[in-house]
Amino acid sequence: MTHPPESGSRRFSRRRVLALLGAGGSVGLAGCGTGSGDVRYGDERSVDLPTTVDTNASNASAASAAAASAQLEGDAYAVQLDALALRDHGMVVRDDYRGAVVQGSIENTGHQRIELVEVRARVYNSDGEQLGRYLDSTDDLAAGSTWSFEIVVLEDPADIASYDVAVLGSLA
């Protein structure tokens, strides 16, 4: 069956309208975040870490294992989302290959699954200079679910005076 030319162009217009509506919906969902691309970190938290524990800085094998576990590069599509709530966090020193870690939990308080959740930590020395930025991430955090994170920090615990964290995510 053939359609008159105007019918075909009308169909093209309907497809185009539907495509634009779909793109608009995606942009609308992306707007559920709270940021304009800038990452907002929470208040800086001071730490008093033990320096007598054998950490990854003193053992080449442990340092290599920690470096393999540490995540340094974040996802460029991750933004701050209102549905992600940082429930708790703290810094401890593990007596294994991980050494200094920032641990805590994040809850998806929203009504839809979040495809990517990322928590970033920046660590500082006693002079306030940033020593590094590290992260942990997970995929597919269901609505109402809580995720426990552990960020491996590749700095000597004796050098760390404080840290701060930011929680990011991506819907799709």
Score class of each variant (00 low, 15 high):
residue 156 D to M: 12
residue 24 G to T: 07
residue 87 R to S: 09
residue 96 D to F: 03
residue 126 S to P: 04
residue 35 G to L: 01
residue 154 L to M: 13
residue 68 A to T: 12
residue 143 A to C: 10
residue 26 S to V: 15
residue 45 R to E: 14
residue 140 D to E: 13
residue 153 V to R: 02
residue 105 S to C: 14
residue 169 G to N: 03
residue 23 A to E: 08
residue 42 G to A: 12
residue 40 R to W: 08
residue 50 P to M: 03
residue 101 V to I: 14
residue 65 A to N: 11
residue 41 Y to R: 04
residue 17 V to L: 14
residue 102 V to I: 15
residue 13 S to F: 14
residue 136 D to F: 09
residue 118 E to W: 07
residue 30 A to F: 07
residue 148 S to L: 08
residue 172 A to G: 15
residue 95 D to A: 07
residue 82 D to T: 13
residue 130 Q to S: 09
residue 121 A to E: 01
residue 126 S to N: 10
residue 66 A to Y: 00
residue 89 H to C: 12
residue 71 Q to F: 03
residue 33 G to N: 02
residue 83 A to F: 11
residue 94 R to A: 04
residue 48 D to S: 13
residue 161 A to D: 08
residue 40 R to I: 08
residue 90 G to N: 08
residue 9 S to Y: 11
residue 121 A to P: 03
residue 124 Y to V: 00
residue 52 T to S: 07
residue 119 V to D: 00
residue 138 T to K: 05
residue 125 N to W: 02
residue 167 V to N: 03
residue 85 A to L: 13
residue 17 V to H: 06
residue 108 N to S: 10
residue 113 R to C: 04
residue 93 V to G: 06
residue 17 V to Y: 06
residue 18 L to K: 08
residue 41 Y to E: 09
residue 64 S to H: 11
residue 119 V to H: 02
residue 63 A to W: 03
residue 79 V to I: 08
residue 136 D to I: 10
residue 111 H to F: 15
residue 124 Y to M: 08
residue 37 G to H: 09
residue 122 R to D: 06
residue 123 V to I: 04
residue 124 Y to F: 15
residue 107 E to S: 10
residue 171 L to K: 04
residue 165 V to H: 02
residue 14 R to M: 12
residue 16 R to T: 11
residue 76 A to P: 02
residue 96 D to S: 08
residue 84 L to N: 05
residue 142 A to P: 12
residue 82 D to F: 07
residue 3 H to T: 06
residue 150 E to F: 09
residue 167 V to T: 15
residue 39 V to L: 01
residue 64 S to T: 13
residue 58 S to H: 11
residue 125 N to L: 01
residue 158 A to T: 05
residue 154 L to G: 11
residue 79 V to D: 05
residue 2 T to N: 12
residue 72 L to V: 13
residue 24 G to R: 04
residue 20 L to Y: 05
residue 63 A to K: 06
residue 168 L to H: 00
residue 2 T to V: 02
residue 112 Q to F: 15
residue 133 R to D: 02
residue 54 D to A: 10
residue 50 P to E: 07
residue 88 D to M: 05
residue 55 T to Y: 06
residue 84 L to P: 01
residue 21 L to C: 11
residue 166 A to P: 00
residue 19 A to D: 08
residue 139 D to T: 14
residue 97 Y to M: 09
residue 80 Q to R: 10
residue 62 A to Y: 07
residue 99 G to T: 04
residue 49 L to A: 10
residue 136 D to L: 12
residue 7 S to N: 04
residue 128 G to C: 04
residue 160 I to G: 00
residue 101 V to N: 01
residue 117 V to S: 05
residue 122 R to V: 03
residue 138 T to P: 04
residue 22 G to R: 12
residue 86 L to P: 00
residue 104 G to S: 07
residue 43 D to F: 14
residue 160 I to Y: 02
residue 165 V to R: 01
residue 11 R to D: 11
residue 50 P to V: 13
residue 141 L to W: 07
residue 59 N to Y: 04
residue 161 A to N: 04
residue 24 G to M: 12
residue 60 A to S: 15
residue 2 T to L: 10
residue 85 A to M: 05
residue 109 T to D: 11
residue 74 G to A: 13
residue 163 Y to P: 00
residue 50 P to T: 15
residue 125 N to F: 01
residue 88 D to R: 14
residue 127 D to E: 14
residue 164 D to P: 03
residue 129 E to H: 06
